[in-house]
Simulated assay, not measured.
Amino acid sequence: MTTATLTTKGQITIPKHIRDRLMLHAGDKLDFTLTETGDVLLKPVTRRVDEVFGRLARRGQPVLTPADMDAAIQRRMAKDAP
């Protein structure tokens, strides 16, 4: 059993071996579910690229290279810059 201490701000540190096992990184989102028996389930919400690969494709949409995607991101960032 692994334990963690709750701070006065309501925060805990997830032990390293748990973070490693769940492949958690700073900024990842977590889902807490309270079961009927009072147990709490913790699940990562962040998905890996291989879990969502291909879900954004639409028929007729051109295939973009990573360089094309980087260029599109740079154009959008420049457009949104103050």
Score class of each variant (00 low, 15 high):
residue 10 G to H: 02
residue 10 G to M: 04
residue 10 G to Q: 13
residue 11 Q to T: 05
residue 12 I to N: 06
residue 13 T to P: 00
residue 13 T to G: 01
residue 17 H to F: 04
residue 17 H to W: 01
residue 18 I to N: 07
residue 19 R to Q: 06
residue 19 R to C: 06
residue 19 R to G: 00
residue 19 R to K: 13
residue 20 D to Q: 14
residue 20 D to H: 09
residue 20 D to W: 02
residue 21 R to C: 02
residue 21 R to G: 01
residue 22 L to P: 03
residue 23 M to H: 12
residue 23 M to K: 10
residue 24 L to R: 06
residue 25 H to T: 04
residue 25 H to S: 11
residue 25 H to M: 10
residue 27 G to Q: 10
residue 27 G to S: 09
residue 27 G to T: 03
residue 28 D to Y: 03
residue 28 D to Q: 11
residue 29 K to Y: 12
residue 29 K to L: 10
residue 30 L to I: 13
residue 30 L to F: 02
residue 30 L to K: 01
residue 31 D to L: 12
residue 31 D to R: 09
residue 31 D to T: 10
residue 32 F to Q: 02
residue 32 F to W: 07
residue 32 F to L: 05
residue 32 F to P: 01
residue 33 T to K: 06
residue 33 T to C: 03
residue 34 L to W: 02
residue 34 L to T: 10
residue 34 L to E: 04
residue 34 L to M: 06
residue 34 L to N: 07
residue 36 E to L: 00
residue 37 T to I: 03
residue 37 T to V: 04
residue 39 D to E: 07
residue 40 V to R: 01
residue 40 V to D: 00
residue 42 L to M: 15
residue 43 K to Q: 14
residue 44 P to Q: 11
residue 44 P to E: 08
residue 47 R to D: 09
residue 47 R to T: 11
residue 48 R to Q: 13
residue 49 V to N: 03
residue 50 D to Y: 13
residue 51 E to C: 05
residue 52 V to G: 02
residue 53 F to A: 14
residue 53 F to V: 14
residue 54 G to R: 00
residue 55 R to V: 09
residue 57 A to P: 04
residue 57 A to T: 14
residue 58 R to D: 13
residue 58 R to Q: 15
residue 59 R to P: 13
residue 60 G to R: 12
residue 62 P to W: 11
residue 64 L to Y: 14
residue 64 L to P: 00
residue 65 T to Q: 11
residue 65 T to A: 05
residue 65 T to M: 07
residue 65 T to W: 09
residue 66 P to F: 09
residue 66 P to K: 03
residue 67 A to G: 13
residue 67 A to P: 04
residue 68 D to I: 06
residue 68 D to N: 15
residue 68 D to F: 05
residue 69 M to L: 15
residue 70 D to T: 08
residue 70 D to P: 04
residue 71 A to M: 06
residue 71 A to T: 12
residue 73 I to E: 06
residue 73 I to G: 00
